[in-house]
Design a binder for these strands. Structure first.
Lengths: 344, 344
DNA sequence: TTGTAAGCGTTATCAG
DNA sequence: CTGATAACGCTTACAA
């Protein structure tokens, strides 16, 4: 018994192909009675549409845009690399991709970029930008023009985004906290560093981290966050100073990017060997440091999954189909030296 | 500028559609000169074939079989559940799946099952069975009949399998060892339990575990492996006895399945609270124990990825296309309570 | 050795 | 409101 096609439905329902198509695609101009006949046939035969044949006939080309932060960041670099890789794979079939970079800290520039997108010729946008009122408005505008929106890596919970693809920052922070508590057994203080506590993700990671440390690991005390404001030199300087001033530090939690200057400062301090360092995201810098035993663990998200998931979800959203949640859930990866994915 | 089609190639090369097709599919009966003309056109226009349209025209239905161990095992249950889930998703498009279960410890029964497969009507087989000479022969036979073979979860390194989908057992053991060494800071012994050391995977995990413990964590000493031979009652009994007899035990490494009886025994001993327990695979039992804080960490592989990867790879192999390695690499997941994937 | 034409499952155009 | 009929990009008899 073969999979039923539109032809079978047409025969079974006693109507023409065109009518079946109209019903299946909920197009107007069909009598209720006819609709019922067709739907009956669909039920009885267990028809399920062949999306690929449909896309072929429709000459469908999904137009998606990825809006990513510009400027030097190893994490966004790996994300862009993953995007490039995905473009040349099956997953990007019938997808035309436009990648736009924006200055992450300039909400108005972001909005300008978003406006410059031709919404009429766009099916979906994946957005990795901090949430601001301006961005929320821009999202609403795009939505109003029929564009699907997914928030990528960093959620836009109060916007009208259709979906979020990334990890829960509180859970990520809790994971880091738990590992810190178990790895660093001596009593002492934990240095917490980040680019900026203005970002929601940093706040949430800190929140999760603190919850676990104070609930489960009373031998540790997390110090107030140090912010680098994306200034590498500043980061190095401040970390140097704090490490020198506080001999009780036993661990370092790096919540944001900028692991390179952090590691430089720690190496210079001569105390890296006794410190438990935990950071986020697998980048060339953190990978190397894991290899060397300088970082104990990295909390990461698989960038390959991230971009593939974004494309799948945008496509599904564009087709008004239900999303297969289990496949799209991004896991919080724990990476130590021993399970570091080979770059072979 | 639109994506070039076979028509464009035909026009550019000054030949017919059929000839283009013959060249693209390396079918015989085309003059070298003509082949060159077509290939030139392909190069110049940057043609890339639309696999979906091709499969549509070809009425392709991939016939795959999954051969899995029978009998009660929470891990294989989750694997089968993942398989079922995948079947009803896009990934299984144009795939007809047959799932066969075999008694894992009876090589001859496995071979009988493999023989009963109609190789002529089969494109590929995913195999999760222990490697034995009989299995190797059966694989060779299937290969000879043109069936593609992937080893799933457990590699068949000395057979003619086309691909292995799973994690490296030595690395998995090393990961477990490293976590054990960092989590269990008191000096003491580590109990190591498994179903059977006859399995290559157990041997390799043990090897990796021992490497790391002896190299990096001299405060721990791994005891000889205890084998349960898939006998839950026996497992409980032996573990009870050993725990009672050896007060120096600070950690337990469970290399195989059978975590339920193990946990029962540990609970009964009243010492579970002081023990660092590390096990493999995320199942209802280990998930629950993670949640309760009874197990410190689980080394896992994502069963969803496993089955999706198997299908993708079998399909790719059937089409004689190159495999996108990065996408198919299965990661060694470290799961603790804080990054436990929700079952929402 | 090469070309023509039909067909895969779906959508879309244009008459009726 | 409904039905033929021609696409979409590719494969495949069957002819030439």
């Amino acid at each position: 018994m073969n999979k039923p096609t539109v032809h079978d439905i047409a025969k079974e329902a006693g109507v023409s192909l065109a009518t079946v198509d109209r019903v299946l695609n909920a197009r107007p101009g069909v009598r209720d009675k006819t609709i019922a006949k067709v739907q009956g046939a669909v039920e009885r035969l267990g028809y399920v549409r062949d999306t690929y044949a449909a896309n072929l006939a429709r000459q469908r080309l999904y137009q998606f845009a990825f809006v990513l932060p510009e400027g030097p960041s190893q994490f966004t670099d790996t994300l862009k690399a993953a995007l490039k890789e995905a473009i040349s794979s099956q997953i990007a079939d019938r997808i035309a991709l436009k990648v736009v970079t924006v200055p992450a800290h300039d909400p108005h520039a972001i909005v300008r970029s978003l406006r410059s997108l031709n919404a009429a010729a766009l099916d979906g946008v994946a957005l990795m930008v901090p949430e601001t009122p301006q961005v929320r408005d821009a999202v609403a505008r795009l939505k109003a023009e029929g564009v699907r929106i997914v928030a990528l890596v960093s959620d836009l919970p109060n916007s009208q985004r259709d979906y979020f693809i990334g990890i829960n920052s509180i859970a990520a922070g809790r994971t880091a906290g738990s590992l810190m508590g178990r790895f660093a057994h001596a009593q002492g203080e934990v240095l917490v560093v980040t680019n900026s506590m203005r970002s929601r993700d940093s706040l949430d990671r800190r929140l999760g981290f603190d919850q676990v440390i104070s609930d489960d690991f009373p031998h540790l005390m997390a110090l107030p966050s140090i912010e680098s404001y994306d200034d590498a030199a500043r980061m190095e300087q401040v970390v140097c100073d704090v490490i020198a001033a506080r001999p009780g530090i036993v661990g370092v939690y790096s919540m944001g990017s900028g692991n390179m200057p952090l590691l430089n400062a720690l190496r210079a301090s001569g105390r890296l060997g006794e410190l438990t360092v935990i950071s986020h995201e697998l980048t060339p810098a953190t990978r190397q440091a894991l290899q060397n035993g300088e970082i104990a663990a990295v909390i990461a998200q698989n960038v390959g999954h991230l971009v593939r998931s974004a494309m799948r979800v945008l496509r599904t959203l564009s087709d008004d189909l239900p999303i297969f949640e289990a496949q799209e859930r991004i896991r919080i990866d724990i990476i130590i030296r021993e399970n570091l994915p080979g770059s072979r």
